[in-house]
Simulated assay, not measured.
Amino acid sequence: MGQGSTHLNSQMQQQETSIPLWKYDKERHGWSQKQCNTTDSSNKEWSQFRVVTYNVWFSDKYQPMRVQNLCDILNKSNAQVIALQEMTKNILQSLLAQPFVQEKYYISDGDGRTFNGWYGVVLLIDIHLHISRLNLINFPQSNMGRRLVFAEIKLDNNEILRIGTVHLESLNNAPQRLCQLNICQNAFNRSPAGTCILMGDFNFHAQGQENIDQFKALPGWIDVWTNIMGIDNRGYTFDTETNSMTKLHNGGADQSRYDRIILRSNTLIPTEIEILGNKSIGIEEDLHIFPSDHFGLTAVFEQRK
């Protein structure tokens, strides 16, 4: 959700820019910039491809405990691409210090420079993948500094993947969200046909008229949760009934599936999806603590046979 975001100039113009990858330098013991298409990847062919999306909650409440547990979840996921929303510079620095991140991933931001205001979105991408470009797009007229970060990845000789992460406009801003999703779709459409995956905090309910309207504007895209689990499985990723920490800090009851992984592809099919981080990780001040106020999602894709 992220209602606590810093409001920015509503006239911020749409602007697409190329941004560098960041890779950990073992000799210098630090992160350094790396241009796309100069990869040292192994060109490994993927029979399965796993992704994770997680809104990590910008709050400093219980942050050390939450961030460490979040890092454990991400490490165990063994995902090829991880999309994170509400990343602050403090959380980013904790993530960059993790040995598994240093060993296994490129990252789209090494110091928070792509954040608008005090938080942003980040991609982690397996270092064995060949990344041909990494771009950032400002959403015009966003009051919350919202952006799209997306990469183009050559999975093998026959499969090009375009994959991105977003944190769409919060609150009662359905027209803004529609505009932002259209910008995402147009960005993916500029390249030749291939697989497209968009994931993040979409900030609208999975049931209701806005969900219908948004997907009408996304022809050919599927909601991976619904595709695998069916329309009757609510799959709440924001759930004050389960997450008492969220209930306390949200100020009211809310059960919603705000977080999504959506797919458009003729060659990859989703085979698994599950919720992450929906178990208490400890107790502080008689309150059950969770990794975030949202739950995460992980999905697996396979080549269509």
Rank of each mutant, 00 (worst) to 15 (best):
R264G: 04
Y258F: 13
Y106H: 04
T165G: 00
K305P: 02
T17P: 02
L263W: 00
L96F: 10
I273K: 11
T88E: 00
G164F: 00
N116R: 14
H130W: 15
D60N: 13
N69H: 15
N233P: 05
N90P: 02
I289A: 03
Y106E: 07
T53E: 04
L198E: 00
E27F: 12
Y24F: 14
T39Q: 11
L287Q: 02
D72L: 10
G252D: 06
G110H: 09
E152Q: 14
Y106V: 10
P140K: 14
S10I: 15
S47M: 10
L136A: 07
C71P: 05
R113N: 02
K89N: 14
K89C: 09
L155D: 03
S41W: 15
Y54S: 01
N233R: 11
F215D: 03
L70Y: 06
Q35Y: 13
T88V: 03
L21R: 01
W57M: 13
S32Y: 09
A187R: 08
Q14D: 06
L276Y: 01
A299S: 10
M1C: 11
T195N: 01
G251P: 13
K89G: 04
L178N: 04
T165D: 03
G117S: 05
I197H: 01
F58H: 11
E45W: 15
V52Q: 02
L178Q: 14
F202I: 06
I137M: 05
M199C: 05
L84E: 08
H249K: 03
R66V: 03
Q176D: 09
L21N: 00
L198D: 08
H130N: 15
L161N: 11
P219V: 01
N90M: 12
Q3V: 12
G164E: 00
T267A: 09
L198N: 04
M87D: 02
